[in-house]
Write a protein that binds this DNA or RNA. Sequence first.
DNA 1: CGTGACAGTGCACACATGTGCACTCACGTA
DNA 2: TACGTGAGTGCACATGTGTGCACTGTCACG
Lengths: 207, 207
Amino acid sequence: MTESRVERKGRTRRAILDAALALSDDTTLVALSLRQVAKEVGIVPTAFYRHFPSIEDLGLALVEESLDTLRALLRELRRAAGEDAGTIIDGSVAVLVEQVRGHHAHFGFLARERFAGPAGVRAAIARGIELAERELATDLAHLPGTDVWSERDLQILSALIVGAMVTTAERLVTAEPGSPEEHRIAEAARTQLRMLLIGAQSWKSRD
Amino acid sequence: MTESRVERKGRTRRAILDAALALSDDTTLVALSLRQVAKEVGIVPTAFYRHFPSIEDLGLALVEESLDTLRALLRELRRAAGEDAGTIIDGSVAVLVEQVRGHHAHFGFLARERFAGPAGVRAAIARGIELAERELATDLAHLPGTDVWSERDLQILSALIVGAMVTTAERLVTAEPGSPEEHRIAEAARTQLRMLLIGAQSWKSRD
DNA sequence: CGTGACAGTGCACACATGTGCACTCACGTA
DNA sequence: TACGTGAGTGCACATGTGTGCACTGTCACG
């Protein structure tokens, strides 16, 4: 029951990604040395190059992964919202809490590298978040009552919601799962979403 | 016209702070070496210790400074809002843009270190931002129409506004002063504030 | 079966880093 | 004017860093 060659390579690659995620958990990519990662994985430093040309490329791979789980979050949100419009808010926040819990490392990574990471990494994250905002905007456009909104306003509302979500996620990352702290953050997020959506409903009357 | 002793010491200290601010501008504190800072300032590495026991302590001093300019921003906002309630929004955003322009380095520093900095630095920033939220909450309580709000709701609305402000600031930091990009960000911020305040006005009817 | 691709090793090198220690020399005070 | 304080120096050391190069052994394919 031995391992195939490409399987083994894949496993080491995964191990490197996980080690980098774990090691950068209380610092940043830029403060991460190739040798630390290699030691953590249990390979010799130069073997690192068999998988990534540099730490920054490793970072880009991690961004890709993390953005994948961000997109998965959006998909889940869409699904939850579709089920019952009445519980959009509670459902969305529940999904958010659950996803952040389950993919703690990825959301933490995004929060940290968004502004502090290497330039390429920062750019990739910014692109990903902007894309998420646009995606959410088209979702919102399908909701009833938003037909009188301009496209630009929809985008701005999306940015507001995504911003609140990101901030909430960043806070959730630092909270213990199931802690009262986590509940307080979730409760605040529910109220915030409610405030935003109420504002949105009155918006059309203004312009 | 020679310099006094304490003046000279103060000047070097300032130079160290400025150098650290400049050098960490496209990375993080944690990726900053004592030797780099010393070289930038033009002193020998060990002379650094005459001013700070470690890079992290340097960081804490920078946090203090940056939070000072954040508080100054709040003060300016309060002043602008007091002048004419009708132009609260436009005035506030104008103040925000102006302050971020003028203290680019400090706001960038806060954005970067908020999640990626050393633990002590992160904690200090979190405390500062929470304080700012509370301060804003008591300001909001003095506005007409908010008397039916619970204290908790006021705090949550503050968090929403401060969050949007911080996000806006973070975006402004990466934009050229006077660029169309900057105008777009400011315009979006105005719309966001409008949406938030409209939501706030309808809020009391709900609970 | 033989052989080449290739993940991982081991060693080497030239730097960069934090920090200890003894020093100089200008300033401010007694 | 004599002297102590303290900012800045110069040198040293151990340790961590990225990366080049020749290597080994094993899996997969001709």
